[in-house]
């Protein structure tokens, strides 16, 4: 082998060694990065505090036919909690102590239909509560009828 060929061979070996060293360094850096990523504590927070700061006593406005009605045929009108933010069109938050009142089922002109009782309830800022929703809320939080 001539001197020129030996020199060329040495250069190639040197380059290969350098490349191997760089690869090794790069792998080590990657490992460090991965290890660092795993070691970072994951901090969790609520997605939206305002959205979750609500009680579970939420109801939708029920059709009159599904409404909670007493033995006298009076429709139960629930009161949205004035201290809770309410969404127009519902669902409505009745708050921690749900309450409501029975609508009048009769006036000077005679009996008031359930549909008209529902209209009167909504006109007064109330929400028609269904029998199912009333039973659920009553069993959990109680329901104060005024």
């Amino acid at each position: 082998m001539t001197d020129k060929k030996e020199h060329k061979q040495a250069q190639i070996e040197q380059q290969l060694a350098l490349k191997a060293s760089e690869d090794s360094l790069s792998k080590n850096k990657r490992r460090r990065l991965l290890k660092g990523a795993v070691a970072l504590p994951v901090i969790m927070t609520l997605h939206s505090g305002a959205a979750l700061a609500r009680t579970s006593n939420m109801i939708g406005d029920a059709p009159a036919v599904d409404a909670q009605v007493d033995m006298e045929g009076r429709l139960l009108c629930a009161h949205p909690d004035p201290t809770q933010p309410q969404i127009a069109g519902g669902p409505y938050d009745l708050g921690m102590m749900p309450s409501g009142h029975y609508e009048k089922q009769i006036d000077g002109n005679g009996p008031i239909s359930l549909d008209n009782q529902a209209i009167n309830c909504r006109a007064g800022g109330g929400v028609v509560i269904s029998g199912v929703a009333y039973t659920s809320i009553m069993s959990r939080s109680g329901f104060n009828i005024m």
Binding site: P41, V42, I43, M44, T45, L46, G49, L52, A53
Partner: peptide, 8 residues
């Protein structure tokens, strides 16, 4: 978590 963010 509603009081403050927290780690696992």
């Amino acid at each position: 978590l509603s009081q403050a963010p927290a780690s696992t």
